[in-house]
């Protein structure tokens, strides 16, 4: 679905965004400081808890730390790519989305891909470095297979996040609520900073099947640590396929609704 002109258009937009974000130096510094504080404090919390408890359910401190790191990495990646969803509603309300639909671009370009946020990149780089630092410090050996699986499953996670955001974009066309949906997603993804199997069953179900943050965030970490079992993996892939299809289906529906509702 992504063609050459979509890609070059994205590059042009990305270049523009870097330029204008570099202009606002003070606010970008504050934003990046905030992101890093959240990141470091999260690690401190995990560390403090383990000092007092020794384990969280079956997980050791080393594993939990890796989970938190992967959570931040996946969060930064999805925020970087799909930031545009936060500003889609005003575009819809003003009717400017009409003009986007007249262009030979995929219709999801504007609501999802049109605002890559480069404030998320410096934190992302630091988080990736931190991941390697901790892997090394804990002497966790990553086999090539595990690493390869991690990359693949992380990409699967980005695809799944894409369809979740596409669902949110559809809802924002069909209803007018969208902010609440995004924040609910963000809150729930918070829960996935630790492996979801520490939670009660029904909560696990919500985090896997309804708002699949577990597959987006926890699963890549499991793959990296080699904790993945084939059944979970298979189920997760099925859920991803389901989400991709249903989001595309609902998106088409909502586009049709959009074109029949406006005058």
């Amino acid at each position: 679905m992504v063609t050459k002109n979509t890609f070059t258009a994205w590059l042009v937009i990305a270049k523009n965004n870097i330029q204008s974000q570099l202009l606002t130096r003070s606010s970008s510094t504050l934003f990046i400081v905030g992101k890093l504080l959240q990141f470091v404090f999260s690690l401190i919390i995990i560390n403090s808890i383990f000092k007092n408890t020794g384990t969280i359910k079956d997980y050791a401190q080393e594993e939990a730390t890796i989970f938190v790191l992967v959570y931040f990495i996946m969060d930064s990646i999805t925020q970087f790519f799909f930031r545009a969803i936060y500003t889609f509603r005003p575009v819809l309300l003003k009717g400017d989305y009409d003009l986007d639909l007249l262009k030979p671009l995929p219709s999801y370009f504007r609501p999802l891909l049109s605002r890559p946020d480069f404030f998320d990149l410096p934190p992302l780089i630091i988080q990736i470095i931190a991941l390697f630092f901790f892997l090394n410090r804990y002497q966790i050996l990553i086999t090539p297979t595990n690493f390869f699986a991690f990359v693949l499953i992380a990409m699967n996670g980005v695809l799944l996040a894409f369809s979740v955001f596409l669902l949110i974009a559809s809802f924002s066309i069909l209803t007018t609520e969208v902010d609440n949906l995004i924040w609910t997603y963000r809150s729930l993804s918070n829960a996935a900073r630790l492996p979801v199997d520490i939670y009660p069953r029904f909560f696990q179900f919500i985090l896997t099947g309804i708002v699949p943050v577990a597959i987006i965030i926890t699963l890549p970490a499991k793959a990296l640590l080699g904790l993945l079992n084939p059944q979970v993996l298979g189920l997760s892939l099925l859920i991803t396929i389901f989400f991709v299809y249903s989001s595309v289906f609902l998106w088409r529906k909502s586009l049709k609704h959009y074109s029949s509702a406006s005058s």
Binding site: K51, N52, I56, A191, I198, P200
Partner: peptide, 23 residues
């Protein structure tokens, strides 16, 4: 409400093994 439930379950899980955390 959502973020509350997440915090709650998180701490419920964390405190399960020792029936508490620290003091």
């Amino acid at each position: 409400l959502v973020s509350f439930f997440i915090l709650f379950y998180f701490w419920a899980a964390v405190s399960e093994t020792n029936q508490g955390v620290g003091s």
